[in-house]
C-alpha cells in the first residue's frame, strides 16, 4: 500500500495550529477533501463556544454586569490569549480576574467596571468551593477531651470549601442582588474594606458577610496558626465557637508546644 503523504503528527499539529491561528487554516484545509474544507469552521466554532460557555458558567455575575455582547467580546480575547492547556474544563478561566484587570486598565470604556476584578476573583473561588473536597464533621467530643494545659497548642482546620476574601467593594451585597436577579446594581465608591466568607451549604455555594475580626481569625486559621500564636498576635478568637458550630472548622490537631 502506498504510504500517505502526510503522517499522523503532521495532521494533529496542523489541525491544532489551524484551530488557534487563522494564518494556518489554509495549510490544514489543504489536507482535506475539497468539499469538506468549509466545514472546518465547525470545529473552530465548537471550540470557541465550549470555552465561551465555560466562562459564562463560571462568571455569571461578570457576564450580567458587562452584558452578553461585551462579555462575549472580552471572553473571545481571553480565549485567544489563554488557550485551553489541560483537559479539565473546570480549571479553565483561572486567569480571568487578572485579565479583566489589564483590560479595564487599558480600555477607558471599561473604567466603571473596576469592581469586576474582585467579582471575578469571587466567582473563581465559588467554582473552587463548589467542587472542593467533602470533609468529616467536627469532633466536638475530641475537643472537649483535650487537656486544658494543651489547648493553646491547638491548630484548627478550615473545611476545604471555605474561602475568605476582602475587597473594597460590597461583594456580599452584589452577590445577593445577583441571586435576586436584579438587573441594575449601584456600585458604591471603593471604601475601606468588606470581608466575606465563601462556603458550601447543602451543595450550594453561599456567601456570608464577615467583620474584620472574624476575617482575621479565619485568615489565621487558614494559615494553620495555633491558638496561642493567634492570641499572641492579638487576634479576637471569640468567633471560634461560632465557626465550629457552623462547621466551617472541620477539625483540629496539636501544634508544636511553645
Amino acid at each position: 500500500m502506498k504510504e500517505a503523504p502526510i503522517n499522523l503528527a503532521q495532521w494533529q499539529q496542523q489541525f491544532a495550529l489551524a484551530l488557534v491561528d487563522e494564518r494556518h487554516v489554509d495549510d490544514f484545509t489543504g489536507l482535506l477533501n475539497e468539499k469538506d474544507s468549509r466545514r472546518f469552521e465547525t470545529y473552530k466554532n465548537n471550540a470557541r463556544q465550549a470555552l465561551l460557555q465555560t466562562l459564562i458558567t463560571t462568571y455569571p455575575m461578570c457576564e450580567r454586569a458587562l452584558g452578553e455582547q461585551c462579555f462575549a467580546q472580552l471572553a473571545s480575547h481571553y480565549i485567544h490569549r489563554f488557550p485551553l492547556r489541560e483537559n479539565n474544563l473546570n480549571q479553565y478561566g483561572a486567569y480571568f480576574a487578572d485579565f479583566l484587570k489589564s483590560e479595564i486598565k487599558a480600555n477607558h470604556s471599561l473604567k466603571d467596571y473596576d469592581y469586576l476584578v474582585d467579582v471575578a476573583t469571587l466567582e473563581w473561588h465559588q467554582q473552587h468551593c463548589y467542587y472542593a473536597q467533602d470533609s468529616a464533621n467536627f469532633d466536638a467530643q475530641a475537643l472537649a477531651a483535650v487537656d486544658d494545659s494543651r489547648q493553646a497548642e491547638l491548630v484548627f482546620m478550615l473545611r476545604p470549601d471555605i474561602v475568605i476574601m476582602q475587597s473594597q467593594y460590597p461583594l456580599y451585597e452584589l452577590w445577593l442582588k445577583h441571586r435576586e436577579n436584579l438587573q441594575t446594581v449601584e456600585i458604591p465608591e471603593p471604601r475601606s474594606l468588606y470581608y466575606v466568607c465563601i462556603y458550601r451549604d447543602q451543595f450550594r455555594v453561599k456567601l456570608e458577610s464577615l467583620s474584620r475580626e472574624q476575617y482575621l481569625l479565619l485568615e489565621q486559621i487558614s494559615r494553620q496558626q495555633s491558638l496561642q500564636t493567634m492570641i499572641d498576635k492579638g487576634i479576637h478568637i471569640q468567633a471560634l465557637a461560632r465557626f465550629i458550630q457552623k462547621t466551617w472548622i472541620c477539625g483540629f490537631k496539636h501544634g508544636k508546644q511553645q
Partner: peptide, 16 residues
C-alpha cells in the same frame, strides 16, 4: 484526539 503538544481542545477531532 483532542490535544497536540500544549494545545487542548474541548472537542473530538477526527483522524486520518
Amino acid at each position: 484526539f483532542s490535544s497536540s503538544g500544549s494545545s487542548h481542545f474541548p472537542d473530538l477531532l477526527p483522524l486520518p
